[in-house]
């Protein structure tokens, strides 16, 4: 069940990464106020997005593992 769960999860993560590529298509208009349009083109902003996504994935995997360990102990102790 855990492997299935992880598979499903990684599928969703991949799907979101693909969907968000669409966001590349944004173009900057009226640049009176300084925004990160340039950054998004070649300012390596995707590196930052990737790093945040990775860190978040790490936290989630940690939570899932903790959750599974608890489930195991609960089974051993016959809690519900």
């Amino acid at each position: 069940m855990n492997i299935k769960f992880m598979k499903r999860l990684s599928f969703f993560i991949l799907a979101f990464a693909l969907i968000s590529i669409n966001l590349f298509a944004q173009s900057g208009v009226n640049s009176e106020v300084a925004m990160a349009d340039q950054m998004r083109n070649d300012g390596k902003i995707w590196v930052v997005v990737g790093v945040i996504a990775l860190i978040f994935a790490g936290i989630i995997v940690y939570l899932i593992r903790l959750d599974n360990k608890l489930t195991k102990v609960e089974k051993e102790l016959n809690i519900k």
Binding site: S20, V33, V48, V49, A53
Partner: peptide, 28 residues
Amino acid sequence: KILTVIILYYVIFQGLLGTVPRQPILNE
């Protein structure tokens, strides 16, 4: 829990790369 991860990934990607209003001082 899957829903949590999906929503938060949506928030991270859309939040960092989606369109936002242009406000002085606040910027990005």
